[in-house]
């Protein structure tokens, strides 16, 4: 199936172009509509970072080195996941115009939202690189290990797409999944290694390293970028297995529940 999708996208059809067109429009709809425009996309992680920095460094005096870079990485990855999952709960309703009149495959709509979030992630990563290389104290630099950022992002995309498919198809049956998910996501934020130092996370929330599907992504991203080490392979493999599992459930739900979206929503 995966091969067929790839063949479809690159084999002379217009699907790649359509993916890019829909992604651009989605990105524009989300950010350009505001007066501050694109700047909002960049302000979000910076403002989050500032708030948590004040809380943890000034108030709680955690004294953790390179804490801003540490936070920055965790937040931009978490925000990508959250925007892809939360932002798409109502997608089968809001994008009904795309599938109600044609036989276009619904998965393309989800991919375009992921595409739009990848554009946002690109700008956020640029902002991070700027901070990491020029502003962060000490001699911070990128080593060749950053090449592993590519599989880590791939893992994040698979995981986000899986959650996006699952949540949006549940929405067909239960509209209040949005409220329930917000509680789950809020809990997930505090049970992920976003704010806590590795020592604190390992001592208090150690079991979550493997249970929480986004842990492996955030931990390995920091390992390669800040600490210049190879990723924890076992954790990375587990992350891919976990994400693929959610994606397969999501695809199954889209093909069963999602197929009825046009008549139910």
């Amino acid at each position: 199936m995966a091969l067929n999708i790839l063949k479809d996208f690159f084999g002379g059809t217009n699907k790649l172009e359509r993916f890019w067109l829909l992604s651009k429009i989605e990105f524009k709809l989300r950010y350009y509509e505001n007066i501050l425009g694109l700047i909002w996309a960049l302000i979000k992680p910076i403002s989050d970072c500032l708030i948590y920095y004040i809380a943890f460094e000034f108030i709680l005096k955690s004294g953790f080195p390179q804490y801003v870079s540490f936070l920055f990485i965790g937040l931009i990855l978490w925000n990508f996941f959250l925007e892809s999952a939360t932002g798409t709960i109502q997608i089968l309703s809001t994008k009904k115009y795309l599938y109600e009149y044609t036989n276009m495959n619904k998965i393309e709509i989800y991919l375009s939202v992921i595409g739009s979030n990848l554009i946002g992630l690109f700008f956020n990563t640029l902002m991070f690189s700027f901070y990491f290389l020029l502003i962060e104290n000490g001699s911070t630099y990128f080593s060749w290990h950053v090449i592993f950022f590519i599989p880590i992002i791939l893992n994040l995309i698979i995981l986000s797409l899986g959650f996006s498919l699952i949540l949006s198809t549940i929405y067909i049956l239960a509209k209040d999944i949005q409220q329930i998910w917000l509680i789950v996501a809020n809990l997930g934020f505090w049970l992920s290694p976003i704010l806590f130092s590795p020592d604190l996370f390992n001592s208090r929330l150690r079991t979550l390293k493997y249970i929480n599907p986004i842990s492996s992504i955030i931990i390995n991203a920091r390992t390669i970028i800040i600490y210049h080490h190879l990723p924890e392979w076992k954790l990375m493999a587990w992350g891919f297995v976990y994400a693929t599992f959610f994606l397969l459930i999501g695809i199954y739900m889209l093909n069963t529940l999602g197929a009825k979206a046009a008549e139910k929503l």
């Binding site: 217009n14 172009e17 829909l22 429009i25 599938y99 009149y101 044609t102």
Partner: peptide, 30 residues
Amino acid sequence: MLMNLGVGMSHELTARENIYVSGSVLGLKI
């Protein structure tokens, strides 16, 4: 393509954007 009183268009998009989106959904290249 199914057409009754309208075709699939987003009210949040301009006429230009809708033309490109609809055309693309119907299989045309840019």
